[in-house]
């Protein structure tokens, strides 16, 4: 589905990375691994068409990504290294907003089950700013499921999460893969996720 061909990115006359090749098909989990500053986030941003590559190209369903951008956006969702939930609103209000914004048809019972799995069900009426950073991060994964897109792009999804939460997220990844979904995620730490391909940057 996504093909990254000979991609090089240069910023302020400094080479971030060069000739990166990547192919993301259905049911694949791709890990971008590298030290801080190696260009993991830059590559993810390039895939999201936020950064212009110096050379190379990105294709979506055989067409240049730029020419097929909004079709690509219909299938992709992104979790950045920051949290998108609205801190002044409660967990429930955030869920309601996400369901409306992403025109999601997820049922309330499905949301309840995910909240229970993520151990967030007791915080439903609490404001997000009263949750810990790890809990807010877990809430982001609920957004992924509400969005119900085929391709997940995640930047450092395991930072600030304990081992148990990482295990739960790993299961969520496997579940998504079994539904023919694809995942590209960056990480500088080891994880138990069974990845299809590792790209070293």
């Amino acid at each position: 589905m996504i093909l990254v061909k000979d991609l090089s990115i240069e910023r302020s006359n400094k080479k971030i990375f060069e000739n990166v090749n990547l192919s993301v098909g259905s049911g694949k989990i791709i890990l971008l691994k590298g030290k801080n500053g190696s260009g993991k986030t830059t590559l993810l941003k390039a895939i999201l068409n936020l950064i212009e590559p110096s050379s190379g190209a990105i294709y979506w369903k055989g067409k240049l990504l730029k020419k097929n951008l909004y079709n690509f956006f219909n299938h992709v969702t992104y979790i950045a290294d920051k949290t998108s939930s609205l801190s002044k609103l409660s967990v429930q209000e955030n869920i309601n907003i996400w369901k409306k914004i992403f025109l999601s048809n997820i049922s309330n019972s499905q949301v309840d089950n995910i909240l229970k799995t993520l151990k967030l069900n007791t915080y439903l009426n609490q404001n997000v700013n009263s949750l810990s950073f790890g809990e807010i991060k877990k809430l982001e994964f609920l957004r992924l499921i509400i969005e119900n897109k085929k391709i997940w792009i995640l930047d450092e999804p395991f930072s600030n999460l304990d081992d148990e939460s990482i295990h739960i997220i790993g299961q969520t990844f496997e579940d998504h893969r079994s539904k023919e979904g694809s995942i590209i995620f960056s990480s500088h730490q080891e994880s138990e996720i069974n990845v299809s391909e590792k790209v070293l940057l």
Binding site: L48, F73, Y78, A80, T83, S84, L86
Partner: peptide, 9 residues
């Protein structure tokens, strides 16, 4: 909080 990007996506 990254919502501008999420809205764009």
């Amino acid at each position: 909080n990254g919502n501008l990007l999420i809205m764009h996506l």
